[in-house]
Design a protein around this nucleic acid. Structure first.
Lengths: 338, 338
DNA sequence: CCTTAGCACTCACTAGCTCAGAGTGCTAAA
DNA sequence: TTTAGCACTCTGAGCTAGTGAGTGCTAAGG
C-alpha cells in the first residue's frame, strides 16, 4: 500500500504524462503541482515508486513515465469517476435513440465513440449461430426476386436477396414460409441449419425450397460468427505513440485479422461494468502497447456483445471510462436489455 | 508526340519507380533495361522528357521520377491492359456471386479490392432519395416490435425496427401496409416523403401510422444520401509515401468527412469504363498526392454507384486498372445491371 | 547529326563530434 | 526526514566532413 504522498505523486505523474506525452521530471512536478516539498524529496519518492514498479525511466537522465502497473494502480485506486457531461449524454441518446436493428446500433455506437474520443473505437456484434430464430419472411421484391428476412432472438435482422428461376406465386410463397416457420420454432440458428435440411426436404423438395435453404445456409456462414466493427482509426494517427507507422500497422492488422482479438474480447464481455486492459495485460501481441477499455451491452437481458475504445496506454482514462460506460448503457437501453 | 525511344524510356522510368519507389537514374535504366545506348544518351532523353514535363527531379543530383503528366501519358498511351488472372476472377466471382442486397455487395466489393491490391478501396452506395420505392413491408418481430422493410428500385433494401406502444393486430398491420403501398406506387423516396404525410394522414391518423411515417422519414434522412464505404486503410501504411502520418491523416479525414469526395466521385461516375485521376487532377486538396482509380457499376441498366482504389500516384496502374474493372463488372452483373 | 566517354559539379545522406539542457542520484547539512 | 548542492548521465540539436549517386556539359568519334 502506498502512502498518501506517493499516491499523490503517482497520480500527478500519470496525469501530467497523459496530458503532455513527455516524461515527467521532479522539478516540473514541484512547479506544476506544488506539493509543498522540494524537487529532491519528490525525486526520492519517485525513485521508490520506480523500485516498486509503478514508474519507468526511459533513460537515466529523463523524467519518469508510468508503467503498466502504474496505470493499473491509477485506474483502480486513484481515478475518481468523471461527472457526466450533459451535452455528451444528449448526443449519445440522440444517436442511439433511433430504433434500429442491432448491427446499425452497434455501428452508430462505434462511430460515436470514435468521434467523442481521440482514439479508435470497437464494437463486437453477436453472430447468428447461437441465437434463437424467431421468424423467417419471404418478401416479394420483383418478378424474379425474393427478399429473405431472418429475425433472430436478441433483435438481430439479416436479409438476403434470392433470385428465382421461375416466379413463385403468392400462395406457394406463403406455404413455404409457413413450413419454414413451423420448423424453426425455438431452434438456434445452428440447430436449424443442421436439422432443417433433413426434415423439410422430404415435404417440399422443390426448386425454391433448395434456394431458400441455400440462402439460409449462406446467411449463417456469413453472419453466424461475431463481427468486429472498427471506427476512428484516423484518430490514432494523431497520437505520438503511433507516429511510427509500423506499430499502427501491426495493430490494425491484428484488429482486422479478427478472430484472435474477438476471442479475447469475448472473455471480457462476461464481466459487468467497464473493463480496462492495460498494455501487457492484453494477450494479443500487437495490443501490448495499447490500452483497451470495454463494456458489455445487453439485449433482452442477455450480454450479447461489447463496445470499447483502443488507444495508447497513455490514455485519458477518466474521459474514456465514462464514455464507454455511457455508450454501453445507452446501447443496452436501445436494445431493450438494460 | 514522343518518339519511340522517349516512350520506351518514360515507360521504363515509370515502371521502375513504381517497383522501387526510388528516383531512377540513367545508369540504372541502362543496366536494367539495356536499350543498347549509353547512360549519357539516356540522360539526354531524360532531360528532354523533363523539359516536356513528363519527369520531375527531386533535386539536382537525384534520378528522375514521373510527374503527374508522366503518369497520365503512361496510363493513356503506354499501358497495355493486364491479362486477366484466372484465380483472381474466380475469387471475385465467388465473393460477389452470393445474392445479397446492394449495400452488402458494395461492402464485399470494397473488401475484395482492399485485399487484392496494396491500396485502400472505396465504394459509393446509392442513397434512397432519388430511387423509386417498390414496396414497404411491416413484419411482426415480437409483441412490441415491427420491422419496417423498405424495398426500392435498384435493389436497395433498408430496414428499421419500430417499437409499438400497444401491439397492433394482424389485420390492422395489413391494412396499413396496403394503404402505404397504394400511396407509394411509382414515387421516388423524396416525393413520397413529401407527399405521403399530407394524403394518408387524413385516412389513418392513428398512433401506429405516425410511428411508421416517422420511421420512414428517418430512414430517408439516414439512408437518403449516397454513402462512402472505405476498406484497407492499413494497406496505405505500408506505402512509403504515407510513412509521414500527417499526410495519411489529412487524406483519411477528407475521405471520412465524406461529402466533398463523394461529390467529386459522382461527377466521374457517369463516364463509362475505368477512370483514372492522377495527383493534381483531383479536385480535393488532400487527394493531390494520390491517384484514384474508379469505375461505375450498374443496377437495372442504370449507373448507381462506383467502386475504386486510392493509393499514391506511384501506383501499380496495370494491376489496379484491371482489378477495378473486373470488380465493377462483376458487381454490375451481380446487381443485374451489366 | 547523333552518340558517347570523360569530367567537374551538385546535393542528399551519414557518421562523428561537440555542446547545452534536463534530469538524476548521492552526500552532507539543517 | 527534508533539502541544498553538486557531479554525473544521457538525449537531442547543430555542425562538419566525407561519400556516392547522379547530373550537365564538352569534345571526340561514328
Amino acid at each position: 500500500m502506498l502512502d498518501l504522498r506517493k499516491r499523490q505523486i503517482l497520480q500527478a505523474v500519470v496525469e501530467d504524462y497523459i496530458a503532455t506525452a513527455e516524461p515527467v521530471g521532479s522539478r516540473t512536478l514541484a512547479r506544476k503541482w506544488g506539493f509543498g516539498v522540494s524537487p529532491a524529496t519528490i525525486r526520492n519518492e519517485m525513485a521508490d515508486l520506480e523500485d516498486a514498479g509503478y514508474l519507468d525511466q526511459p533513460h537515466t537522465s529523463a523524467g519518469r513515465i508510468p508503467s503498466d502497473k502504474g496505470y493499473r494502480y491509477y485506474v483502480d485506486q486513484l481515478l475518481e469517476p468523471e461527472p457526466p457531461r450533459p451535452e455528451e449524454i444528449k448526443r449519445i441518446e440522440a444517436d442511439l435513440g433511433a430504433r434500429r436493428e442491432m448491427m446499425q446500433l452497434a455501428q452508430a455506437a462505434a462511430r460515436l465513440m470514435a468521434e467523442l474520443s481521440p482514439y479508435a473505437a470497437l464494437a463486437v456484434v453477436p453472430g447468428l449461430s447461437p441465437s434463437r430464430l424467431r421468424r423467417i419472411h419471404l418478401l416479394p421484391v420483383d418478378e424474379s426476386h425474393l427478399l429473405l428476412v431472418l429475425v433472430a432472438e436478441p433483435g438481430i435482422v439479416e436479409t438476403r436477396l434470392l433470385e428465382l428461376g421461375n416466379p413463385a406465386g403468392q400462395g406457394e410463397r406463403e406455404r413455404w414460409m409457413e413450413a419454414l416457420n413451423q420448423e424453426l420454432a425455438g431452434l438456434t440458428a445452428t440447430e436449424f441449419d443442421a436439422t432443417a435440411l433433413a426434415t423439410i426436404r422430404g415435404e417440399l423438395g422443390t426448386n425454391l425450397y433448395v434456394q431458400v435453404m441455400d440462402a439460409l445456409h449462406e446467411v449463417l456462414s456469413d453472419a453466424g460468427e461475431e463481427r468486429l466493427l472498427m471506427e476512428g482509426v484516423a484518430n490514432l494517427l494523431r497520437q505520438p505513440e503511433f507516429q511510427d507507422s509500423q506499430r499502427l500497422m501491426t495493430l490494425l492488422q491484428s484488429l482486422t485479422g479478427g478472430s484472435e482479438v474477438v476471442e479475447e474480447l469475448r472473455g471480457k464481455s462476461r464481466q459487468p461494468g467497464v473493463t480496462v486492459s492495460i498494455g501487457r495485460e492484453n494477450a494479443t501481441e500487437a495490443m501490448r502497447c495499447c490500452t483497451l477499455v470495454t463494456a458489455a451491452y445487453r439485449a433482452g437481458g442477455e450480454v450479447v456483445g461489447m463496445v470499447g475504445v483502443v488507444g495508447p496506454t497513455r490514455m485519458e482514462y477518466r474521459r474514456v471510462l465514462s464514455l464507454v460506460n455511457e455508450v454501453a448503457s445507452e446501447l443496452s437501453r436501445a436494445l431493450g436489455g438494460a
